[in-house]
């Protein structure tokens, strides 16, 4: 099987398993709503403050949700030592990373899109044309999270204290992308001009590409027993 073929096989398996159980998706969407609720009481979000801190709230809740979701992405492979079997399969292990990474990307996007209507409802955001560029921000931002997140999930899976260490690893690394996600979302919600948006989108694109490529190269070392 080709590299892409093997990555697609992993992706299909993960999506199928998730589709049948929904054991990651439903709790994560609910968790995102709970975080939004917590932020609402912490910051008195309604009204004028929304445009200032709304994007930050949105992305903070996605990042926290992704921490939980990414942590699970290799946990299932632990049962019956499925990961060992995957690693025994011939060929470059990067395909496992790529399949898992795209799976996580799809999964994060699903969470974001499912919780966005609630964000709009709670915070009186009228839906409109901005949804198109917002979707682009979501895709790039989720790609950034999934790129390093999948590698760190694989690494922390074997560690002691893994629930504690995944956030420690991921949060500081993801900060530059998070900064641009929040800034880009703010510009989109304020109907800002495309030229304002572009540098942030470039930043997110570069981040996603750099860390996807590096992770593909390093996954071999991250996963070996």
């Amino acid at each position: 099987m080709s590299f892409i073929g093997r990555a697609l096989a992993i992706l299909r398996k993960d999506l199928q398993a998730e589709w049948r159980t929904k054991e990651r998706l439903s709790p994560m969407v609910f968790f995102t709503l709970l975080v939004l609720l917590v932020f609402n009481f912490s910051f008195e979000l309604g009204g004028a403050a929304l445009r200032e801190i709304g994007p930050g709230v949105l992305w903070s809740s996605y990042v926290f949700a992704s921490l939980l979701g990414l942590g699970r992405s290799f946990a299932d492979e632990h049962e019956n030592d499925a990961l060992d079997a995957l690693l025994l399969a011939p060929g470059d292990h990067g395909a496992i990373y790529l399949g898992k990474m795209v799976g996580n990307l799809v999964f994060l996007l699903a969470i974001e899109l499912l919780s966005l209507p609630f964000f709009a409802l709670f915070f009186n955001l009228s839906l409109g044309f901005f949804l198109v560029p917002l979707l682009a921000v979501f895709v790039l931002g989720s790609a950034c999270l999934a790129s390093v997140g999948t590698l760190f999930a694989a690494m922390s899976n074997n560690m002691r204290l893994r629930e504690l260490l995944l956030p420690l690893l991921l949060l500081p690394m993801i900060l530059p992308a998070l900064i641009s996600c929040v800034a880009a979302t703010k510009i989109v919600l304020a109907n800002g001009h495309f030229t304002e948006l572009l540098p942030h989108m470039q930043m997110l694109g570069v981040y996603a590409v750099v860390f996807t490529v590096l992770s593909l190269m390093l996954f071999e070392y991250a996963i070996e027993e």
Partner: peptide, 22 residues
């Protein structure tokens, strides 16, 4: 694992500077 992190961390340094400057 440290080596994997050490490489990723250093790759992140210019990105941190670029994003914070923006």
């Amino acid at each position: 694992l440290g080596a994997v992190m050490g490489i990723l961390a250093f790759a992140n340094v210019p990105l941190v500077y670029y994003a914070v400057d923006l």
